[in-house]
Amino acid sequence: MEGMGQKRRPLVVMASSSTTAAQSASRGGANPLAELTDRFRSLEVGVREWMAKQPTHIEAAVTTAFGAVQGGALGGLMGTFAPEGGAGLPVPQPPPGLDPKAMATFKQAQALAGGPLVQARNFAVMTGANAGISCVMRRVRGVEDVQGSMAAAFGSGALFSIVSGMGTPNPVVNAITTGMAFAVFQGGFFIVGQKFSKTKTHNEDMNYSRGRNMLNQLGLQNYEKNFKKGLLTDETLPLLNESALRDVNIPPGPRLVILEHIKREPGLTKSN
């Protein structure tokens, strides 16, 4: 009887451990996908912080490489699922004596209908150039605006035209026109996106209007981001104390100035 009990005991332990694991998973334990996503975001933040400390040419090179890899993967995927059958089919050649305008149109269609390797190359050049030029423009001009976006789109469109072989009769002119078309489209998208972003930002900033005005009067406008980071909206102004300001990393001097100003301004202590 004792031997039988000893043989059964490990089985009971194994069953209970597996049951515990199942219960842990069913109760919302560690989610592998969530952990992987968090690690990827942490890695992305770390890479961005590292690149921000590097010289312009280092950041531009890394950004271009990442953009080229992403574009190449997308282009290869598009070429694989293309109805033409991908790289297994030979790329057709233009008939002899074709009109120059018809030849340019044929080359454009040929560039857009290539197999996975052709599409991977074309998209890698396009997205890599766009990312690299955008990075340089942002570093040099200190701002990310529509002009920088259009410049990046022009360069990527021109390089895409040259690499893909579009516009054989006059490749230079075709590269310029393609770059201009890319610039117009991307500039339009940037302006539309910026309008939506401004509307959203305006709605969010309404919650910080009195706090922002207070900081501007005190010459402490640099700490507006601290208020937003700590969600210190206008409704919280009557509740502000030294502890709350310390938690959002505002130094002792500005803390004292802010608290004294709130005491002397009755309007700030009235909630909306």
Rank of each mutant, 00 (worst) to 15 (best):
G75K: 07
A60Q: 01
Y223L: 06
G187S: 04
S26G: 09
G142D: 07
G115W: 01
L232R: 03
P266G: 09
R41N: 04
Q194E: 15
N241M: 06
R39L: 11
G114H: 01
V172F: 13
G132M: 02
R8H: 10
I58G: 04
F189G: 15
V192R: 04
A175Y: 04
V91P: 02
D205N: 15
H202R: 11
A15I: 08
E204Y: 12
L240N: 02
Q119M: 13
V146T: 06
E59I: 01
P92V: 07
T19C: 09
G75N: 08
E59R: 11
G267C: 04
A61C: 09
F66D: 01
F227S: 04
A15L: 12
G128H: 06
I262W: 00
R41I: 07
E2Q: 14
L256N: 14
I258Q: 02
E235L: 08
V143N: 07
C135Y: 00
V47G: 04
G97M: 07
M126Y: 10
E224A: 09
K198N: 14
E144Q: 08
G157T: 04
L256I: 12
M1Y: 12
E224F: 13
R48L: 14
S156W: 02
A129P: 04
E35V: 15
A21W: 10
G86K: 05
N31K: 08
K107L: 09
M51S: 11
A244V: 15
E224G: 14
P92Y: 04
G188L: 10
K270I: 15
P90F: 03
L231H: 09
